[in-house]
Design a protein around this nucleic acid. Structure first.
Lengths: 197, 197
DNA sequence: CCTGTTTTAGCACAGTTGTGCTACAACGTG
DNA sequence: CACGTTGTAGCACAACTGTGCTAAAACAGG
């Protein structure tokens, strides 16, 4: 018994998923056909289908990959333990596409989120991500008003979560109408107000 | 010279656009093919193409129709002049899909907004709508802190706008994770905080 | 070398896509 | 009625879609 595996399967999958992301970021989800993805990845159709049995599987993998990357980035942040406002700003800034790369990534995420409304497998990935982000927001809220009653915490969590996603959405949709500084300032303003009352 | 027009062209266009909305709401933008739209509208392909020379034209018309309807609804609201919190809640609630019909409408809007990232004609419609909503938010902000300096007004406008769009997005994406009451309560909380400081 | 497995390549097929086009039915006006 | 415009119907076409499939190349172990 032997196993002649001479390619890194995971790396190949990532290569393909990244080609998919480039296409979706540039021309939308409709541009992500199997043939075009294979082309963009520098592979043949047959080779691509060796790693993903169907297009659906590939799309789901791509969305999972983005989710995992965001998770990793947040995991690896080191936050100043003595400055809640700065820590929260750093943390939540990670959820808003401030630079070019993150914007492309977020655009792909948005496109896949859109399709998740009609694709259960994608919906599951999105829901997991939603839960993560909501927990993150709750954590932040507790830094600022940890002694408040549960109902208040819940409300402020939803408020912060909505603000973050709204800022991210606007940043993606109107990249020229906003600046990094303005977004961060808005975030900071909200956090300070949260502490204030 | 005579003009035998025996059908209401605008009504026909709306009929087609509404069929499009139903399809997009149910199965996403990818399901909105010319043939399926014609079927859903109860027309033939040829007839449809008599009212819209291309699919693109139809899609743009559909997005414009939604934008105009939202505008009209907001225009027709009568707001209590003596209660800013109630007035603002009424106004902004119109931007968040609280009932079934608005949710479907908003899902279509989201799908079209997504495509607007790669379709200039759609992008124009979206930008107009963005401007409208931003003005609306600014108006509301001025009710609460009209005496603040411009920079503050601008920041609070962006904050409110992001909150509203975030709430709308969450409502559309996770219809079961939120209730109408919770959304309205969050909105009210924000407005009261706006007045508070 | 040979054997067995993995990987690559790409054709085949049936189905769908948007749009161009022609033919005819429906209708108000003269 | 007949003319001319408007509306409807749907075929034709080339392009593209996802997936099934076969065949061969690349490689590791014997």
């Amino acid at each position: 018994m032997y196993m002649p595996r001479y390619v890194d399967e995971t790396a190949r999958r990532r290569l393909i998923a990244e080609a998919t992301m480039r296409l979706v970021a540039a021309d939308g989800l409709q541009a992500a056909s199997v043939r075009r993805i294979a082309d963009e990845a520098g592979l043949s159709m047959g080779s691509l289908r060796h790693y993903f049995r169907s297009q659906d599987e590939l799309i789901v993998y791509t969305m999972r990959l983005i989710r995992d990357r965001v998770r990793d980035r947040i995991q690896k942040l080191d936050l100043p333990p003595d400055d809640p406002v700065a820590a929260a700003t750093t943390l939540l800034s990670e959820l808003i596409p401030l630079d070019r790369d993150r914007m492309a990534e977020f655009e792909v995420w948005l496109a896949l989120s859109g399709r998740s409304l009609v694709n259960p497998a994608l919906a599951e990935v999105r829901e997991q991500s939603d839960t993560d982000i909501r927990r993150l927001c709750e954590r932040v809220v507790r830094w600022f008003c940890g002694d408040a009653e549960d109902e208040r915490i819940r409300l402020e969590t939803e408020r912060l979560y909505a603000l973050v996603d709204g800022l991210a959405l606007h940043r993606a949709m109107q990249p020229d109408a906003t600046t990094t500084e303005a977004v961060v300032a808005t975030l900071r303003r909200h956090l300070e107000a949260l502490r204030g009352d």
